[in-house]
């Protein structure tokens, strides 16, 4: 019975991190900063939730581990693809930005309304 409670607490912490990720994409000023919180907080939230579920029900641990690994591997890739495409079409950065070396290297291709 104890492992049920421990696992549920892990799930709860994971859900809190997921919530923080969502809060981050609302609060952050521009797309790239949103992506930072949207990638990191949700990744740890996913892994913690899967870990907690695995503690609660050890028979499912293999499949839960697969899901967690899947998130861990694909999440950076999709956010990298989004960030690259956004920079390519010239999504503006926040005025707080101090430096943009990519702009000097690869100028923005088009100002599409993406």
């Amino acid at each position: 019975m104890v492992h049920h409670i421990v696992g549920a607490v892990f799930v709860l912490i994971g859900a809190l991190f997921l919530f923080l990720g969502a809060l981050g994409i609302v609060r952050m000023p521009d797309l790239y900063n949103r992506m930072q919180t949207g990638t990191k907080a949700t990744t740890l939230g996913n892994v913690l939730t899967m870990l907690g579920l695995g503690i609660m029900h050890p028979a499912w641990l293999l499949k839960l581990t697969l899901i967690a690994l899947f998130v861990l591997f694909t999440n950076p890739i999709s956010s990298h693809a989004l960030a690259r495409a956004a920079h390519r079409v010239g999504v503006p950065m926040t005025p707080l930005t101090v430096k943009d070396t990519l702009k000097d290297k690869k100028p923005v291709v088009k100002e599409a309304e993406v």
């Binding site: 997921l18 996913n46 989004l82």
Partner: peptide, 19 residues
């Protein structure tokens, strides 16, 4: 823009999967 919406879609997926 659509890019920010795509980020929101990404985050929504990542929240819904563990849920």
């Amino acid at each position: 823009r659509a890019a920010s919406r795509a980020v929101a879609l990404d985050v929504l997926t990542l929240i819904t999967m563990p849920m």
